[in-house]
Computed example of a mutant assay.
Amino acid sequence: MGAEGGLRERKKLQTRAALADAALRLALEKGPDNVTVEEIAEAADVSVRTFFNYFPHKEHAILGRNPEHLERALDRMRTAPAEESPLTTMWFVVQDVLRDLESDGQLSRRGELIMSSPTLLYQLMMSSFDDERQLTAALAIRMGEPAGSVRTALIVSAAGAACRVAMDLHKNAPDRPVVELVREGFQLLAHGIDPAFDQRGIS
């Protein structure tokens, strides 16, 4: 049963990857608004019904959304060493997702496509907000902070913002890899974006 279960999981991963690859390829060729679910399913050699077993709509397929990313992130949040800083944990979470998205060699092209499409950008923002709410709740538990903690929400959302900013900047600076731009964003967050900020203005 173990071997059979492992084979099923591998097949699921392969099918999800085939659908995401087909969706991205077609979106790059025709534009995301001109691609249909039927075309994506046909290109991946699966049925439309199978498509909806993996993605709720074509935009998630083009984005390469994978529920396992959030599951792994939440698990990483729960099992992080006690001495690991919250921002460091978020870096490992983001690094894991970027590594997975980079595995098909299309991270940069996907990022450029997303930033050029209002529909894809909206879907990315909406799905990111939902992920961030769950990660914030998990981080609050880990840090022993109450629900509604500004600090935990800010750590998680700032990490997400670093990724979105990196994708946008990469569009105008394609020679700088997205991962490099994300890393720079995290370094700025870690050291303080504006250490000279005059707090008297908000006291």
Rank of each mutant, 00 (worst) to 15 (best):
R110P: 11
R110M: 15
R110T: 07
G111N: 08
G111A: 14
G111K: 13
G111P: 13
G111V: 09
G111R: 11
E112W: 15
E112I: 15
L113S: 12
L113Q: 11
L113W: 09
L113Y: 11
L113I: 08
I114T: 06
I114K: 12
I114W: 06
I114A: 10
M115W: 10
S116K: 15
S116W: 07
S116I: 09
S116G: 14
S117G: 07
P118Y: 03
P118M: 12
P118W: 08
P118F: 05
P118L: 12
P118K: 04
P118A: 11
T119N: 12
T119E: 13
T119G: 11
T119K: 13
L120K: 00
L120Y: 01
L120P: 03
L120N: 00
L120M: 02
L120G: 00
L120I: 02
L121A: 07
L121P: 01
L121T: 07
L121K: 08
Y122Q: 12
Y122G: 02
Y122M: 07
Y122N: 06
Q123Y: 05
Q123T: 04
Q123C: 12
Q123M: 09
Q123S: 15
Q123L: 09
Q123P: 00
Q123D: 13
L124R: 12
L124C: 04
L124E: 02
L124S: 06
M125D: 04
M125Q: 02
M125G: 02
M125P: 00
M125Y: 06
M125I: 05
M126D: 01
M126E: 09
M126L: 13
M126G: 01
S127K: 03
S127W: 00
S127F: 01
S127M: 00
S127A: 05
S127Y: 00
S127H: 00
S128E: 00
S128D: 01
S128C: 02
S128F: 00
S128W: 04
S128N: 07
F129S: 04
F129Y: 02
F129E: 10
D130V: 04
D130Q: 05
D130T: 01
D131N: 08
D131P: 00
D131Y: 08
E132Q: 12
E132Y: 07
E132R: 06
R133Y: 00
R133F: 03
R133C: 03
R133P: 00
R133L: 08
Q134N: 11
Q134K: 13
Q134H: 10
Q134M: 14
Q134W: 02
Q134F: 01
L135R: 08
L135G: 03
L135E: 06
L135T: 05
L135H: 03
L135Q: 06
T136E: 10
T136D: 01
T136Y: 10
T136H: 07
T136W: 08
A137I: 13
A137L: 14
A138W: 03
A138I: 06
A138Q: 09
A138M: 08
A138S: 14
A138K: 03
A138Y: 07
L139Y: 11
L139H: 10
L139A: 11
L139S: 09
L139G: 08
